[in-house]
Design a binder for these strands. Structure first.
Ligand code: MN
Ligand code: MN
Ligand code: ZN
Ligand code: ZN
Lengths: 150, 150
DNA sequence: TCTTAAATAGGATTGATTCCTATTTGTCAA
DNA sequence: TTGACAAATAGGAATCAATCCTATTTAAGA
């Protein structure tokens, strides 16, 4: 990602914080910058270890609390998992997930075919739907290859 | 669920255990009986507390390990969550989930509209897909009603 | 029965998350 | 620019979930 693009997103992020009456702290901006440049779907601990390079005495609690705050204001998504630590997704655009049961990778994909998963009427009238996603369980390319070896 | 239906399912379950060379222990059968009669998507701890009534000195570890074993042999599913303890699903037929972000309930639904979510070619050729499900985030009926009050 | 590997109970350990509180800091109004 | 104050942070403790360890028990086949 270009420095220019990062700067642009940080500006938008700061706007979002202001809208929600959140203080603009160096920690929050630092965590946000790590997040948008991170591999997809990092855990809090991974974000912590990366952001620690820039803020050597940031605490894990701050990172974790901040990620939850970001989820609340819509800066990121908490994604579905099948156990283990929470995983966060800086990509808040509509997309779908394949979970590799062997290595735990979560692979993003988009698909016109289910572009707008319409919600069944019975659900739409009784429940308030916030987000929708197709979740696949399976084996990723690397892990499929490994299995073949036996 | 009828006693007769329970007995039928237990017989099938025992067959499945035999096929996988698993011993038929009273604990395993007890856990299975609790599971098929449980509210949907219980945690290991909930199953433990219920099964404890019949087996007062069963250990949590046994329940937890058994649930994992059941998942391995396809007797149940581990379902997607957004943090918190693992949740298990005795209903292994194809269906979809709505997660209430307020109370944590997972509501099952079926929908002809996504009857067979075909997997995009790009995914199908590189990855081995085991299961597919539409996952909705939202608010359940009860929690939507509560929100209205403010 | 007898044998043996598998399974269990119960406690310890690890891992993830949240809580607690003294201290620091961003923000806003003077 | 400064001062006041609520919000946020650091660091450690506590809680909750999951797994590990090991002595003992038990299901199943001979
Ligand atoms: Mn994603
Ligand atoms: Mn279900
Ligand atoms: Zn993989
Ligand atoms: Zn609810």
């Amino acid at each position: 990602m270009q420095n220019k693009e990062i700067a642009r997103r940080v500006r938008l992020f700061i706007e979002t914080c202001r809208r929600h009456q959140l203080k603009i702290t160096p920690q929050r901006v630092g965590i946000y910058r790590v997040l948008i440049q991170s591999q997809r779907h990092p855990t809090a601990d991974l974000v912590f270890r990366v952001v620690k390079k820039e803020f050597p005495n940031i605490s894990f609690d701050t990172v974790n609390r901040t990620l939850s705050t970001f989820a609340e204001i819509g800066v990121l998504d908490v994604v579905e998992t099948f156990g283990g630590p929470k995983r966060f997704d800086p990509d808040i655009t509509d997309h779908h997930h394949l979970h590799c049961m062997a290595c735990g990778r979560i692979i993003d994909f988009e698909y016109e075919g289910y572009a707008r998963l319409e919600v069944p009427k019975a659900i739409a009238t009784t429940f308030k739907v916030i987000s929708r996603r197709v979740v696949l369980k399976g084996l990723c390319d690397t892990c499929t290859a490994k299995q073949q070896m036996f």
